[in-house]
Amino acid sequence: MSRQLSLHLMDTHAGGDVSRIVYAGVKALPGENVRQQMEYLQHQADGLRTLLLSEPYGIPEMSVDLLVPATNPQAVAGYIIMEVMGYPIYSGSNTLCTATAVLELGVVPKQEGRQQFMLESPAGLVQIDAEIRDGVVESITCEGLPSYIDSYQQTILVPGLGEVTYSIAYSGGFYALVDAAELGFNLTLDEEARLSVCAHAIIEAIRIEQNFRHYSLDDVGPIPFLHFMGPVENPAKGQYQSRSATYVHPGVICRSTTGTGTSARLALMQYEKRIVPGDTLETCSLRETRFVGRFTGLSQVEGQTLVENSITGKAYVLNRAEIIVNADDPMVKSDGLGSLLYPLD
Rank of each mutant, 00 (worst) to 15 (best):
residue 22 V to F: 01
residue 117 F to R: 06
residue 178 V to Q: 04
residue 85 M to D: 10
residue 175 Y to T: 00
residue 56 P to Q: 04
residue 271 Y to F: 13
residue 210 Q to N: 08
residue 14 A to C: 15
residue 242 S to F: 04
residue 231 P to I: 03
residue 333 K to Q: 14
residue 8 H to G: 01
residue 12 T to V: 05
residue 332 V to W: 09
residue 47 G to Y: 03
residue 227 H to S: 12
residue 85 M to T: 08
residue 135 G to E: 08
residue 112 E to C: 14
residue 221 G to Y: 08
residue 11 D to N: 14
residue 123 A to V: 07
residue 341 L to T: 14
residue 235 P to H: 12
residue 271 Y to A: 05
residue 111 Q to G: 11
residue 331 M to D: 13
residue 120 E to N: 09
residue 281 L to N: 01
residue 166 Y to K: 06
residue 62 M to N: 10
residue 125 L to Q: 07
residue 114 R to E: 15
residue 250 P to F: 10
residue 65 D to P: 00
residue 311 I to A: 08
residue 312 T to G: 07
residue 141 T to F: 03
residue 102 V to Q: 02
residue 160 G to P: 15
residue 337 L to C: 05
residue 232 V to G: 02
residue 140 I to C: 10
residue 305 T to Y: 01
residue 4 Q to V: 14
residue 215 Y to N: 04
residue 337 L to H: 10
residue 184 G to M: 05
residue 222 P to Q: 09
residue 110 K to M: 12
residue 253 I to V: 15
residue 150 D to F: 09
residue 27 K to D: 07
residue 6 S to T: 15
residue 234 N to H: 12
residue 345 D to M: 13
residue 317 V to I: 12
residue 278 G to T: 12
residue 183 L to V: 09
residue 166 Y to C: 05
residue 21 I to P: 00
residue 292 V to Q: 03
residue 285 S to I: 11
residue 169 A to L: 09
residue 95 T to Y: 00
residue 279 D to H: 14
residue 284 C to P: 00
residue 98 T to P: 01
residue 194 R to I: 02
residue 63 S to E: 02
residue 127 Q to S: 12
